[in-house]
Design a protein around this nucleic acid. Structure first.
Length: 271
DNA sequence: AGTGCGGCCTGTCCGC
DNA sequence: TGCGGACAGGCCGCAC
């Protein structure tokens, strides 16, 4: 289940192989993803040179002269660069062939991912238009969360997972960042002080940044072999650790569902 | 406007 | 051992 660090790791893994290459074929074996893969994707994309592989939130942006392919990995998607022909396996839904012979292959068992086309400007696409700031960018400043949260009575965990507030904070890193900041996930968003939001902001950055770095260090070969980055190698303090001892205070880590998502926290440390 | 929830999917795990 | 069913999870889009 790719969170932002996994998406960024994927971006870094595929970019060197894709950038500057000309799309020569698009094969869609299963168009029914989160949204249908557009019928005219091949017609619009083939012949275009991919100028850059960018990212906005968890969307990968394969930009070219006339438009941009948006790829979302959902929670089970992965991209692989193949240097030679290989028979597609189960859930290998989309292949993008390039003139130099390589293939970008999307595998997505649960099909929560997406492949879309935006033209001419990807940021005008409805899915990207109303997204909040990137967590690692300047406009996610120390006062951002505080300002956005006034009057909001929902749980702070749901608040920081709201893509209109800040993008890229998925379920795992929401629990982790709140633990590091010492904020209880159920606390009303509007009842967290400016000072504590400043800390939370830096914890979100630090958590995601460290995870990206970890992805960078474990960045395996995205060509041919299993290029799957995994977040399991990262040091998660609370996520998935219900019943275990909190390393900070020794209390028992709890789990409960918040906003229909499994949430982990330490009630000894988080208030 | 803010909030909560249904739905899309399938692999994995649990209990019988 | 085999099987059904619950569950997980990103996130849109709708209902309140």
């Amino acid at each position: 289940m790719p969170e932002l660090p996994e998406v960024e790791t994927t971006r870094r893994g595929i970019a060197p192989h894709i950038e500057g290459q000309i799309v020569s074929s698009v094969v869609v074996r299963q168009p029914r993803l989160r949204w249908p893969v557009p019928d005219d994707l091949a017609r619009r994309w083939v012949g275009q040179r991919v100028s850059s592989v960018g990212r906005r939130a968890k969307y990968l942006l394969l930009r070219s002269g006339t438009g941009t392919a948006l790829i979302h990995l959902g929670m089970s998607g992965s991209l692989r660069v193949l240097s030679e022909q290989r028979a597609p396996g189960t859930h290998d839904h989309v292949d993008v062939g390039f003139a130099n012979g390589i293939t970008l292959r999307l595998n997505d068992p649960r099909r929560f991912g997406a492949v879309l086309w935006a033209e001419p400007d990807p940021f005008g696409h409805p899915l990207l238009a109303s997204l909040g700031p990137e967590p690692l960018a300047e406009d996610f400043g120390p006062g951002h969360l505080y300002r956005q949260s006034r009057g909001r009575r929902g749980a702070v965990k749901n608040f920081i997972m709201d893509g209109r507030v800040v993008v890229g904070v998925g379920n795992i890193y929401a629990s982790e960042a709140l633990f590091r900041a010492g904020i209880h996930p159920l606390r009303a968003a509007g009842r967290v002080s400016a000072k504590r939001y400043e800390l939370l902001q830096s914890c979100i950055r630090a958590t995601l940044g460290a995870a990206i770095e970890a992805g960078g260090t474990t960045l395996r070969d995205f060509v041919d072999g299993s290029g799957q980055p995994g977040y399991f190698g990262q040091s998660l303090k609370v996520y998935g650790r219900a019943g275990e001892v909190c390393e900070r205070c020794g209390d028992t880590i709890k789990q409960r569902v918040i906003g229909q998502r499994a949430s982990y926290y330490c009630s000894g440390c988080q208030h």
